[in-house]
Design a protein around this nucleic acid. Structure first.
Lengths: 274, 274
DNA sequence: CGTACGGCCTCCAGTAGGTGGAGAGTCAAC
DNA sequence: GTTGACTCTCCACCTACTGGAGGCCGTACG
């Protein structure tokens, strides 16, 4: 018979925990001194303690452990208990947790990447028209005819469908030559690594080329000023641009923080004829 | 200004939770009536509530949320806070959890598979010598010279190293022609899907062939009887066997339950010359 | 005028699996 | 006999809520 301290050293379970297990009926001492209340454990309890430790490492709830231990005792007499059922049920819930935390993990990574890119863009930026080569890319696109404010629904549909294949910033393709409030014709697009058209989302290769780009910092309703600046520059240099034009949302309202509109960053890109 | 009930409907946070958030200083009402104690929330609190909900969905602790919200308020004045640090730290702990639960998941699957196979073996078994073709297989093996009781260490070393690539029951290869107590020469082996030799564990292809096998039910110290039976059978049929012989542990003491030794199942296999 | 109802309040308890501490009793050795 | 190590019980604390009791306030109905 071991005192609680000795038994604690043998099983490497804290004394407090042993007392708690006694209270919960998970691991009862072999004998309790009626006078002093001292707990004493026989050697065969070591095996029980080992089993409990193993099951706890697998995150079994104490209640289940009690049941499983009871099953085990019955099983000694021959019949194969339904311990397996406990394990299968538990496996289910563990897989559930894996899914849950993986989902969170994925979302966090996305948020962090977004935030970091935005910070970099914030620092290395000059707000002047610059020429840049625009690569062709695979995109998922939803064509919308209506108001620009409806573009959010397009993006979230793409996000739901292709969430894990996204590989760049969302952007709009404008198919209207002039600004339209009510009946605009545009596409909400996201670059993706792979995928095929489905559920009204078109996946296609978007051609690149020689482009002129201007970064716009500030709220979206001030984009007009930047368009003006970019168009003026193109006219000055005698470039002719091709439709559609692109509006890339480098930093906008995040999925958690709306942020300060004065800090939103948008790049206007136009491909030019060579 | 909304009463707590109205605000609850807007934010889909239970009234109880709103009161709790007030108490914790996460989401304070705009105004509290001094007479009645009634809480009243202004419209701008809806956004705060949304952020809290989002962060809670990502399993952020309330304490962190308080800090993050404070950061956000400071950030309105311009400086980019260290919110990112919170996200990164949280990402770490979420990845930790994914690893943790994946590990549990893997172990549970293994236990369940083991248990199930053992049950099947238990039912379909005849305890007579039978001829069976033994396929060649890739194995991880640790050679041990000493006592048979040391084989457990070999298995656990292999388990740690190749845990996720295991694809069959553990077995021993006996290199001694006769039984030795003290100075036995044997290998602890596990079939694996892939891998290369390292850390004193040899990975190699183990040849198959025509074999004779006998199932043994009961504790290991009674294996001698089954060896006797198998050898008698071989002599009777004028077979000549080749070394090493194999002892496959179909059901033994599990990693959780030691189980009843009377129910242990071991298959003795010997390859014969043709 | 009395009361039933809905909304709101505070305070207390409980969840899972322990951990930490206070204050008091017990054991074995010197 | 005393010291120091050991053990006991009881209570509080952790997270993020949830549930319930008992009570206040204003309004509608009989």
């Amino acid at each position: 018979m071991f005192s609680i301290g000795e038994f604690s050293k043998i099983t490497s379970l804290p004394v407090k925990t042993l007392r708690f297990y006694h209270e919960q009926g998970v691991l009862e001492p072999t004998h309790v001194d009626v006078q002093t209340g001292y707990r004493y454990y026989a050697a065969n309890k070591i095996e029980t303690a080992r089993i409990i430790t193993q099951l706890r490492k697998l995150d079994f709830p104490l209640g289940d452990i009690v049941d499983i231990l009871r099953c085990r005792e019955e099983e000694e007499e021959g019949e194969d208990g339904d311990i397996l059922a406990y394990f299968e049920r538990h496996l289910q819930s563990m897989q559930e947790k894996v899914r849950h935390y993986r989902e969170i993990d994925r979302t966090l990574q996305q948020i962090i990447a977004e935030q970091r890119e935005a910070q970099v863009a914030m620092k290395t930026t000059s707000y002047e028209v610059e020429e840049k080569a625009i690569d062709s890319m695979l995109i998922a696109a939803v064509r919308i005819k209506g108001r620009y404010s409806d573009c959010g629904q397009g993006f979230s549909r793409i996000g739901r469908q292709f969430g894990r294949y996204l590989c760049g910033k969302p952007f709009l393709l404008h198919h209207d030559a002039e600004y339209k409030e009510e009946d605009a014709d545009f596409e909400a697009c996201m670059p993706i690594r792979q995928g095929t058209s489905k559920n009204g989302i078109e996946v296609r290769e978007l051609a690149g080329g020689r482009g002129m780009a201007l970064l716009h910092q500030g709220p979206y309703d001030e984009l007009g000023r930047s368009y003006e600046k970019l168009l003026a520059h193109l006219k000055e240099q005698a470039f002719e641009f091709v439709m559609p034009t692109r509006e890339v949302y480098l930093k906008g309202p995040g999925m958690i923080f709306k942020g300060n509109p004065r800090k939103y960053l948008t790049e206007i890109q136009m491909l030019v004829k060579e």
